[in-house]
Amino acid sequence: MDFTLKIWRQEGPQDEGRMESYPVKGISDEMSFLEMMDVLNDQLIREGKDPVAFDHDCREGICGMCSMFINGEAHGPNRKTTTCQLHMRSFKDGETIYIEPWRASAFPVVKDLAVDRSAFDRIIQAGGYVSVNSTGNPLDGNAIPIPKHDADEAFNAATCIGCGACVATCKNASAMLFASAKVSQLALLPQGQPERMSRVQRMVDQMDKEGFGNCTNTGACEVECPKGISLDNIARMNRDYLKSQVTEE
């Protein structure tokens, strides 16, 4: 298969970016999207040109490092699929493919398609954990039975990979789906109760500080989320946030 790639090139955070066009030939339909990018970079290096920088690591859809906006969609055309798990059989021979970085002011471009998502780390640092020391002497794991349904729901929320597709997709560049996934996981479990109200406040405050937008419930984030994190989590977070405004903790 042959493709024309239109790729966003940007030297650094302060530089101006532009779309550049590159042909790639002889791509197999079994290749992953990132393997196709490897072919392009191999070609560029051999031609003495600057290869395209992009983030990637595990290439099995779990580390959350890959992040490309492909033909106007976060992680490309397939549902519940990260860019690294997207294969070229999902494209038509001869197609022109547009590849851009995540675009959000809270995610500045590092170079080309790589962006800085450390704002997500700071949201978690604001309270996305249970304050328990690891050198203490916790209860036996079975001391508090947790209903299977709650454990499963908490697990579903916890499968967020922190890739930022939700932010990139949202017209407001809101991080509500990301933050609410962590808030929900801990709100659904008994371990998370003691800090439940302060956690939601601190995490929402941090989200605002980082410059993420507000949620207007369009639901694009849920559609584009490669892990299928549910919009219900946002509702749950909103409920807790409201409650936290009128309770003392």
Binding site: Y129, V130, V132, S134, P138, L139, D140, G141, N142, I144, P145, I146, P147, K148, A151, D152, A154, F155, A158, Q185, L186, L189, Q191, G192
Partner: peptide
């Protein structure tokens, strides 16, 4: 390790009785 992780809120699989 298991006790520590449960205390942190790691959502391990549970059976219908709520046990790990």
């Amino acid at each position: 390790i298991i006790d520590q992780c449960v205390a942190q809120g790691v959502p391990f699989a549970r059976d219908y009785g709520g046990m790990l």
